[in-house]
Amino acid sequence: MTGIKQVRLSGFGGQGVVLAGLLLGQAGVFDGKYISGSNSYGAQARGSGCKSEIVFSDGPVDFPHLTTADILIAMSQGAYNSYCGDVREESGLILYDQGLVTPKENLRVRHLGIPATDVSVKRLKNKQAANIVFLGVLIEATRIVSPGAIRKAISTHVSERFRSLNLKALRTGMELGRKAHG
């Protein structure tokens, strides 16, 4: 369907998948889009599979859940294996964590490997920032939301204590995105 983009962020509980989805959706709202976002996770708070799905649209969204992903972000091998087959062929895009995911070779979907966790640990000294690094890459590679909107979303939803870390992670991600995207 034209005018609709569907993004799935996935990983395991504790990686910040839900927060990243919230920020991405909020940024879309700031950009004036119609957004429908939903999450799913297991009953336990940490460690089980987790995904956050955002539908971006220029008009009201009929079915608010994701039908086929245009973009998949996979932060774990389990998430990649579960969802890589559900990405739109040819035009789709998969961003995966280079250190944690070994991609399949036979898929007709563009792949970008991102050392998100590695960079978070080494450059940001916080493994928890990988989710935001991914958002930076995504924005640089696709402009699905504007950089200004995502910064505003971070200010809205992230507590002051972690705000500068998140903004730095975003910049780092955007740099990585520029390199990877070429």
Binding site: L22, Y34, I35, G37, S38, H65
Partner: peptide, 9 residues
Amino acid sequence: EAIGHLRET
């Protein structure tokens, strides 16, 4: 549940 947890504009 689906509407309660659905986040929208």
